[in-house]
Amino acid sequence: MKITVKAILLKFILLVFLPVFGQEMYFPKRNADWKKFEKSTYNESVLQDAVNFALQNEYSGSKDLRQAILKGFEREPFHEILGPTKKRGAPAGMILKNGYLVTSWGDTKRVDMTFSVTKSFLSTVAGLAVDAKLIADVNDKVGNYVWDGTFDGEHNNKITWEHLLQQNSDWSGELWGLKDWADRPPREGSLDDWKFRKLQEPGTVMEYNDVRVNVLAYSLTHVWRKPLPLVLKEKLMDRIGASTTWRWYGYDHAWTTIDGLKMQSVTGGGHSGAGMFISTEDMARFGLLFLNNGQWNNQQLLSKEWIELATTPSVPNVNYGYMWWLNEKEGDRHWEGVPEHVFYAAGFGGNFIVIDQQNGLVIVTRWLEPSKIGEFVRQVYKTF
Rank of each mutant, 00 (worst) to 15 (best):
E308A: 14
A346Q: 11
E44G: 13
K86S: 13
Y251S: 04
L47V: 08
K141W: 07
A90P: 10
Y344D: 00
S169Y: 02
R30W: 06
K233C: 02
A129G: 08
W325T: 05
E336C: 00
L288H: 12
K262I: 15
T150P: 05
F37W: 15
S123N: 07
R247F: 00
S104E: 15
A217S: 15
Y251E: 15
G250V: 10
L96N: 04
W147C: 13
W34N: 08
G321D: 01
K87T: 10
S45Y: 10
M263K: 07
F384L: 10
E162W: 00
L230F: 10
R197Q: 12
K97G: 05
S40W: 10
P19L: 06
V354G: 01
P185Y: 02
L128R: 02
M323P: 01
Q200A: 14
T103I: 12
T311H: 06
E76Q: 14
L82H: 11
R75E: 14
S272W: 05
F78D: 15
L15I: 13
N43E: 08
A136T: 01
V215Q: 02
M94V: 07
L47G: 01
P84N: 12
T256H: 07
Q295Y: 02
N298R: 11
G349W: 00
I13W: 06
L165C: 10
G61L: 13
F78Q: 13
D137Q: 00
S116W: 08
F290R: 00
K226G: 02
T312E: 11
W161V: 05
D193W: 06
H253S: 15
R378L: 01
A90N: 14
P313T: 12
Y145D: 13
G203W: 02
V51S: 02
K372H: 08
I278Y: 12
Q167A: 13
S116H: 07
S40P: 00
F343H: 11
F21N: 03
L301T: 10
G294Q: 01
W296G: 01
S303M: 04
K39V: 13
I13C: 10
R66C: 08
A136R: 06
M94H: 07
D49Q: 14
N98T: 00
G250Y: 12
L134N: 08
A254C: 09
D49V: 09
W248D: 09
S272G: 12
Q295K: 11
D238N: 15
K226T: 06
F352Q: 05
D183K: 03
V377W: 00
P186T: 09
M263D: 00
P227N: 11
L55V: 05
Q295G: 00
T267V: 11
F115G: 00
P186Q: 11
P339A: 02
I353S: 03
W306V: 01
T118K: 03
G153H: 08
N157V: 03
R225K: 15
V231S: 03
Q166M: 06
T108Y: 04
G374V: 05
R197K: 14
Q56S: 14
I13Q: 07
K97Q: 15
I353H: 10
D107I: 14
L216Q: 04
P84R: 11
E207Q: 12
F196G: 09
Y344T: 02
N214M: 12
G349D: 07
L302D: 01
